[in-house]
């Protein structure tokens, strides 16, 4: 939902980043306002996933230029956990397995870390159990998942639902979904998309990174960006995604290459 008057949540200007000395992001510009849903599409290697990891503060990536403003403050020097408690959430493309740590404990520790950062008391185990039962409904997860080790032995769909469960619990201002749709069957995709739609509201924003237009049938974006060669090369509405699906990336890439060559 586009509302010109809503506040800016994320403002990225000329962002450049490297990993192991290789430049991946070469000047990304993006502005995201409250209430908006953005989709970032692009071929493999275009820098989409790197962009999401840089926003979340992955230590392997070094920001070498430009700036990231989140709710008015520069966050490029913040530790990943401080970005998280500030309100940035990254749903992982490949959620990690943490053997020996129950999902319930993990969720409680994460939730309480957010509360602590706001100066609130930690929530006790019993109140937390009530809260998490409510949140499970968002992604139609069975309570039995809470007592299994984090993501260990979960199917692909279960891992992605678990990511959205964390999002539901932590209530971020900015949710970045890194290929949350990839590898999902249609039922799981509907469940995950339904969860995201329930959580999106006028005060937060969603940035989806995806290969496939299919996801956008379930989570309708306000903006679609195409990324190539470490930059956002074009931006449009939902119709841009449909065009990409029908025609592929070739024409857009060709237009970009021609422009860049000038």
């Amino acid at each position: 939902m586009i509302n010109e008057n809503s506040k800016v949540i994320l403002s990225v200007r000329d962002l450049q980043a490297t990993v192991d000395g290789t430049t991946i992001l070469k000047g990304v510009n993006l502005e995201v306002k409250a209430g908006e849903v953005h989709a970032i599409m692009g071929l493999n290697g275009s820098g989409k996933s790197t962009f999401s990891k840089v926003l979340a503060g992955h230590p392997d990536y070094e920001v070498t230029g430009g700036e990231i403003q989140f709710q008015g403050a520069d966050i490029s020097e913040l530790e990943p956990h401080d970005r998280a408690t500030a309100g940035i959430f990254l749903a992982f493309q490949y959620p990690l397995e943490i053997p020996g740590v129950s999902n319930r404990d993990f969720l409680r520790v994460a939730f309480n870390a957010h509360r602590k950062s706001r100066g609130e008391d930690e929530m006790d185990v019993f109140d937390f159990d009530d809260l998490i039962e409510e949140k499970l409904a968002v992604v139609k997860m069975d309570a039995a998942f809470l007592d299994r080790s984090v993501n260990e032995g979960f199917s692909g769909g279960e891992k992605k639902r678990n990511e959205i469960l964390q999002m539901a619990l932590l209530e971020p201002s900015l949710a970045i979904l890194d290929e949350t749709d990839s590898g999902l069957d249609i039922d799981a995709l509907k469940t995950v998309a339904g969860g995201v739609n329930q959580l999106a509201n006028a005060d937060n924003a969603v940035v989806m990174i995806t290969h496939y237009q299919r996801l956008l049938n379930y989570i309708v974006p306000d903006y679609v960006h195409v990324m190539a060669d470490g930059r956002i090369i074009t931006t449009g509405g939902k119709e841009l995604a449909e065009r990409l699906e029908a025609e592929g990336y070739e024409d857009i890439m060709a237009a970009y290459t021609a422009g860049a060559a000038v």
Binding site: P80, A84, I98, F106, A110, L170
Partner: peptide
């Protein structure tokens, strides 16, 4: 794994 936990607000 450390980054995954950090990205959830855990130091």
């Amino acid at each position: 794994e450390v980054f995954y936990l950090q990205s959830r607000g855990i130091s």
